[in-house]
Design a protein around this nucleic acid. Structure first.
Lengths: 210, 210
DNA sequence: CTCCAGATGTTGTCACTGTCAACATAGGAC
DNA sequence: GTCCTATGTTGACAGTGACAACATCTGGAG
């Protein structure tokens, strides 16, 4: 295990780490399988013993990202069990900051450009886990009389869309004059979006709104 | 101009059309400059006379997409000038359906994977144009007493994030069991998101108006 | 009308990439 | 100890983006 053996020992993990580093540096587009192999100190075809192809490697990276994100969301929700509104705000904050902490990984996860190999069940699992958690929070909030009694799915989807949209807009540098790397302004935007989405846009006393 | 001349005549446009077709078929990742050239009937380096590199070609495609989107949004807003809430809902609908009508182009525009060449001013222009239009609608709605009197930017950003997030979730097939290609369910989701975002999630202080 | 300079398109080439086939080695099961 | 299989290597191939050098056209100056 100490000497540089012919067999690496845990090449799969080493490849994932190398790939993660290169991904962060150059993005998924500029990441070559050969560079990953070289960084892990193996020949240029060694990765094929552990991943069917390049997409499979990237899929594994993305899956790991989804796992981390789901864990972060659950932890955030667990932190304020008796305050549903706070749970939602915290979860939103975690969603955005986690994604922006690893922009290239987030682009990989959410960009839809990966052809996630074999429809990895990890994706579905993490996604549904997170979405179910969201729905549970809303349900609890409704039971507590804090949230409106509308159907849960529309509410959940709206919240999810709002934070996800904010992430993607920041990742694509599409918000005028605000780069994704400015934590203070990003924090401001997160609270804007979560609070407006919670409260709504329409005037509360307005008589004619449907 | 009729005979197959040495000089194509309008190769730039022809290349963009060919690229657009190939983009729709295989996505930006599977699109090769050589294939574009071949489809346009020219040699494999002819594109370099019209685009600095591959990213420049893709950027031009994306810019065209932004232009079309901005036009669609303005048309939608112009359709209901005296009903700000309706303007927002319609603009949201147009935003989502336009993007989903050309999924690969939308991925290109919003994925953030293109390295949009030279920070094409067209991006900034289209984006700010659309965002300013959104803010104007909100302002008008506030003046009419239909929208809350909160600061405009948070409201605008929240609406934008919501519809953008919905687009990206659908593009990435990340919404459990709902493919982006199901127009009916997509339409349902659009109205969910726009209406919830307009109305909010929190329970209202003064009940009675749904 | 002539002619030539620049714009446009082509040929040839290079390094690099993902992937496959054939081969080498190691470590454990028996 | 022997062999089987998982793991890693070498070598090759077609496809790609990009550059340099060359060919051809076209419009405008004279």
């Amino acid at each position: 295990m100490n000497k540089a053996a012919y067999h690496h020992g845990d090449l799969r993990t080493a490849l994932l780490e190398a790939a993660d580093t290169l991904l962060a540096e150059q993005g998924a587009a500029g990441l070559s399988l050969r560079a990953v192999a070289k960084r892990a100190g193996v020949s240029h075809t060694a990765p094929y013993r552990h991943f069917r192809d390049k997409a499979a490697l990237l899929s594994a990276l993305a899956a790991e990202g989804f796992r981390l994100l789901a864990e972060g969301l659950e932890a955030a929700a667990a932190r304020h069990v008796d305050d549903p509104a706070r749970q939602l705000k915290e979860a939103g904050r975690v969603y955005v900051t986690t994604a922006l902490a690893h922009p290239q990984r987030a682009r990989l996860m959410f960009g839809g450009n990966v052809a996630l190999s074999d429809h990895d069940p990890v994706y579905q699992a993490a996604g549904e886990r997170a979405f179910n958690g969201l729905q549970q929070i809303i349900h609890a909030g409704q039971a507590a009389g804090v949230f409106r009694d509308d159907p849960v799915r529309p509410l959940a989807l709206s919240l999810w869309s709002a934070v996800h949209g904010l992430v993607m807009l920041l990742l694509a540098e599409q918000i005028g004059d605000v780069p994704a790397g400015d934590p203070a302004r990003v924090a401001t935007m997160i609270s804007w979006v979560t609070e407006v989405t919670l409260s709504g846009v329409l005037h509360r006393d307005s008589p004619g709104n449907s």
